[in-house]
Computed example of a mutant assay.
Amino acid sequence: MKLYKALAITAAGSLFMGAAQAETYKIGITQNNVGVDSYQTTYEQAFIEAAEANPDVEVVVMDAGGDVARQIQQMEDLIQQNVDAIIIWPTNGQAVIPAVRKAAQEDIPVIVTNSNIAEEGFDFVASFSGPDNITQGRRSAEIMCDKFTEMGIEDEAQIVQITGQPGYTTAIERAQGFEDRLPEVCPDVTLMETQPGDWNREKSQTVMEAFLVKYDDIDGVYAGDDNMGVGALNAAKAAGRDGIIFVGATNFAVGYEAMDRGEYWGSIYQSPVDDAEAALQTAIDVLNGEDVPFLNYFDTPKITQDNMDEFSKPVF
């Protein structure tokens, strides 16, 4: 557990001896798995920096390390510490619902960040702050279809999909958005198989190696994030399989670099800094009694080789 406290008195405030200090909110966060990829590492750094910059916020920062049981225990710990609000990046959208419900019953507002919990738990959540993952999946399908149409293979293309961790809401929603949208825009494209890559580049490379052995003809790969997409790209390069269109989501630096080399076609631009700052601000807004939408999305636009110059290289 890491405790960060930001308490400061402004020069103007120090002139008024009797002025009441603003209330300091104690906000706890339990994250999914900081060490699994650079997005989550950057998110944590940005969250801490945002808290340190706010004199009215004290944060307790925890990481579940991808362990559902550990995250549930961290929720219990934060409830016992009587924090003012809890931010949770769920390890599993279904399994954490009882812990989220308990926090709500203790009148501690819960803000879900980045990846939502299952719908059954919505009654116990003050707000969700993060990307619209279904829209991301839909936009990735559009990117892939547009490229196939440009190539003239939209009536015959065959693709495979590599998803994130099973049971993880982001993985489920991005796959859902992609699978729902692709038949709408490119009805003759065939999705041959889907396998999980668990957000891991090395595992995704292994998954893609198996796809390459099994299928002689693969025109495209959709990966739930660029970390996995680049793993798949590495497998294809090692096997000498050229001409495959790679599309991801959450544009990592490695994805951006591969796009710049002309090896990776497109992705969805998403900032972990925006993600972290939005989560903290949502919690503060809820505690201040402001009107906060239940689904508090930030925008995640399409990025391809054609428009990548409009975007800065990701820092993660």
Rank of each mutant, 00 (worst) to 15 (best):
K5Q: 14
A8K: 09
I9H: 01
A11R: 06
S14H: 03
S14M: 12
S14F: 01
L15G: 09
F16Q: 12
G18W: 08
A19P: 00
A19S: 12
A20Y: 00
A22V: 10
G28R: 10
T30E: 04
Q31V: 01
N33S: 14
T42V: 09
E44A: 11
A51F: 02
A51Y: 02
A53M: 03
N54E: 07
V57P: 02
V57L: 04
V59T: 15
D63M: 06
G65D: 02
A69W: 00
R70A: 14
R70T: 13
Q73M: 13
Q81P: 03
V83R: 09
V83M: 10
A85W: 09
I88S: 06
G93I: 04
G93E: 07
R101C: 01
Q105M: 12
D107V: 00
I111W: 07
I111Y: 07
T113W: 05
S115Y: 08
S115I: 01
N116E: 11
A118N: 15
G121H: 10
F122C: 01
S127D: 09
G130T: 03
D132K: 06
A141S: 09
E142T: 15
M144K: 05
M144Y: 07
C145H: 12
D146G: 15
D146E: 15
E150W: 02
E154S: 15
D155Y: 03
A157D: 03
T163L: 00
G167K: 13
G167M: 13
Y168Q: 14
A171C: 03
E173F: 13
Q176M: 12
D180Y: 04
V185N: 12
P187G: 02
V189P: 06
T190N: 14
L191F: 05
E193D: 15
T194D: 01
R201P: 04
S204G: 08
Q205R: 14
V207N: 03
V207L: 04
E209K: 04
A210K: 09
A210D: 15
F211E: 06
V213C: 00
D217G: 00
D219W: 04
V221L: 14
Y222M: 12
A223G: 13
N227F: 02
G231N: 04
N234T: 08
A236I: 05
G240P: 05
G240Y: 05
I244R: 08
G248L: 06
F252Y: 09
A258T: 03
M259P: 01
R261N: 10
G262L: 11
E263L: 11
W265R: 07
Y269P: 04
V273I: 15
V273W: 05
V286Y: 07
V286E: 08
L287N: 11
L287H: 10
N288C: 05
N288F: 08
E290Y: 07
E290Q: 15
P293K: 06
P293T: 03
F294W: 12
F298T: 09
D299N: 12
Q305T: 14
N307Q: 03
E310I: 09
S312D: 13
K313I: 06
K313T: 02
P314H: 06
F316E: 15
